[in-house]
Design a protein around this nucleic acid. Structure first.
Length: 583
RNA sequence: CGGGGCGUAGCUCAGUCUGGCUAGAGCGCGUGGUUUGGGACCACGAGGCCGCAGGUUCGAAUCCUGUCGCCCCGACCA
């Protein structure tokens, strides 16, 4: 196999650039961040932006190669779009306002070009503009484009190393279709990307899980996220214990709560609760559990007031509520509106007596008895509140966040795990093609907006997630497919001619068969070399030392389990190749 | 954007409360020597605008004011 142009044929540690550290930098908190710094994969330049050092870059490039292969296999076509975008396109889709500070803008004098330029956080606008220009006929559809490109986002708080940054590598793909369903439709394209994602994450050695995600206003089953479980994550994954259901907490559905029939049909009573406005305060003051209370949350939904009722120990799940209510925009009401609606200060709202406002109750509220809630009178609450008797529930649905103890719809208990999102597939519909006028002519010459899907993968996140999922006290344990090198040869006793010639021969033999080999030729003590090899996580270590050679053997140690076997020097190369293939 | 913490050598940190000699240690780095199967040892050495700016003072890493940066929690997250 030919060497990489410009890189020495033998990849010697002493001639490469690997900077390991014994101590963990104080700023790093999560394991992947700590290990990426210690192993010399990355170096932070400013908050949320990192240099990839040679070792880290090798892994990043391997991930990219896998992504590229699978995208091409799925029929997607690679392009490369710029990071600089004209703000006009973003104004046309309304996303200058929607993205707010996340959209990074250049700062110019007055109205010069800088003020009209933004750094792309994603590329729907650009690709849709291209589709508008070049695609005019149904004969050109369906088509899927992708790129692997740097994105810029003004994240309020970068954190956890490369898991959340302001500048990052993303594989983003966009598909264009003439229809939602049927051959060549969006459903097909979506499925092709979904399948490709499964292959990509599997090949990267990630223990991933695909879950239903909140799909926003588009509705349906139009979105899946690909998650990797890790405490460093920012999302919650809700899974049923029997494995039949998994979803993002933003979307997770729960089985109805059964009616405990614990009601005593107590009389409706007004009780003074001066200054007690929160669930915690009132339940403590009235000596009841939060679960006996009805929480009354007042929203403004598409301009109209909307009240959500949930049990005191539950939280409203706003994406769910949006879907149930059929609204696009949901925000908390301001105190003035609450006062106007309930005739009470904030903290004393309740459903009893509120008739001229839309109320949606969570299912769990429908089976409550003798509950406690606000009296719509400042400094007062009601006890003995019974739905049906004291107020009518016109609309009820599952509108709350799942909590531990909940069950899936099939009755299996739900478990909760933190996780990181490494990929997201999404059916867009015509949001961007409508806004930007990307239309095609059908067989009859009629014009329609193209139907779109978009599909993202966080390339850097794959790297960090792989480390989160696979490391130990000594360092990284790379999956072979994305390891910076497959094999490291540790030459001990570097002044022994035998050791060096045997190492060189093994290196060349493996390299000639296409195996990435790193040769640790440094004149260092064995402990240093072993620690470094473990830290940077190379899957297979070959130890060549004068002690072993005296017995005619070299040793092969696997990083994952530390198991060592001795191979005769003569056939070591062949034997190793056999071992590597079995992996 | 709210709350908390931290800025002293490449890294980890001491010194700051209570102002005072030439600003320290370990790791790492350089030179020489001894070592060599799980982060060796000895000797010598290089390396600092103590984040930045202003102020107080005979004197500031240390006190005061401002400012910038970084980390953590929360809010936010196509």
């Amino acid at each position: 196999m030919d060497s990489v142009p410009g890189i020495p044929i033998r990849m010697k540690w002493s001639q490469f650039f690997i900077v390991t550290a014994k101590e963990t930098p104080a700023d790093a908190v999560v394991p992947s961040h700590q290990l990426m710094l210690r192993a010399g994969l990355i170096r932070q330049v400013v908050a949320g932006a990192y240099t990839y050092l040679p070792l880290g870059l090798r892994t990043l490039r391997k991930i990219e190669a896998i992504v590229r292969e699978e995208m091409n296999r799925a029929g997607a076509i690679e392009v490369s779009m710029p990071a600089m975008h004209p703000i006009e396109l973003w104004e046309q889709t309304g996303r200058v306002a929607a993205m707010g500070d996340v959209l990074l803008r250049l700062h110019g004098r007055g109205d010069d070009w800088r003020s009209r330029t933004v750094l792309g956080p994603t590329h729907e606008e650009i690709i849709t503009e291209h589709a508008r220009t070049y695609i005019n006929s149904y004969k050109q559809l369906p088509v899927t484009f992708y790129q692997i490109q740097t994105k810029f986002r003004g994240e309020a708080r970068p954190k956890s190393g490369v898991l959340r940054t302001r500048e990052f590598l993303m594989k983003d793909a966009y598909s264009f279709h003439t229809s939602k369903h049927g051959p060549g439709g969006l459903d097909d394209g979506y499925q092709a990307m979904y399948d490709a994602y499964c292959r990509i994450f599997a090949r990267c050695g990630l223990p991933y899980i695909a879950v239903e995600a909140d799909s926003g206003p588009i509705g349906g089953d139009a979105s899946h996220e690909f998650m990797v479980e890790t405490d460093a994550g920012e999302d919650f994954l809700v899974k049923s214990e029997d494995g039949s259901y998994a979803a993002n907490l933003e979307r997770a559905e729960v089985a109805p709560v059964e009616d405990g029939k614990d009601g005593r049909n107590a009389p409706l009573t007004v009780v003074p609760t001066p200054g007690h406005t929160t669930i915690e305060q009132v339940s403590a003051f009235l000596r009841c559990t939060p679960a006996r209370m009805i929480k009354t949350i007042i929203y403004v939904a598409d301009g109209q007031p909307l009240i959500a009722l949930v049990r005191g120990d539950h939280n409203v799940n706003e994406p769910k509520l949006k879907r149930v209510a059929g609204v696009l925009n949901l925000e908390p009401a301001d105190p003035a509106l609450i006062k106007n609606l309930t005739e009470a200060d904030v903290g004393y709202a309740g459903p009893v007596g509120l008739s001229n406002v839309r109320i949606i109750a969570d299912q769990a509220v429908t089976v409550m008895h003798d509950a406690i809630t606000g009296a719509n009178r400042t400094d007062h609450h009601l006890t003995g509140v019974n739905p049906g008797r004291d107020f009518e529930i016109k609309e009820s649905a599952d509108i709350r966040e799942a909590v531990p103890g909940d069950r899936a719809k099939n009755g299996a208990p739900l478990t909760f795990r933190k996780c990181i999102e490494v990929g997201h597939v999404f059916k867009l519909g015509t949001k961007y093609s409508d806004a930007l006028g990307a239309t095609f002519l059908d067989e009859k010459g009629a014009s329609h907006p193209m139907i779109m899907g978009c599909y993202g993968i966080g390339v850097n996140r794959i790297l960090a997630a792989a480390i989160e999922a696979s490391h130990d006290a000594n360092g990284i344990i790379w999956p072979a497919s994305i390891a910076p090198f497959r094999v490291i040869i540790c030459s001990l006793d570097t002044r022994e001619a035998d050791v060096m010639s045997t190492s060189e021969k093994l290196h060349d033999e493996l390299e000639s068969r296409g195996v990435d080999v790193l040769w640790d030729d440094r004149d260092q003590r064995p402990g240093v070399k072993f620690k470094d090899a473990d830290l940077i996580g190379i899957p297979v270590r070959i130890t060549v030392g004068k002690k072993g050679l005296a017995e005619g053997v070299v040793e092969v140690t696997t990083r994952k389990d530390g198991q060592t076997q001795r191979l005769g020097v003569a056939g070591a190369g062949v034997e190793l190749l056999r071992l590597l293939q079995g992996r």
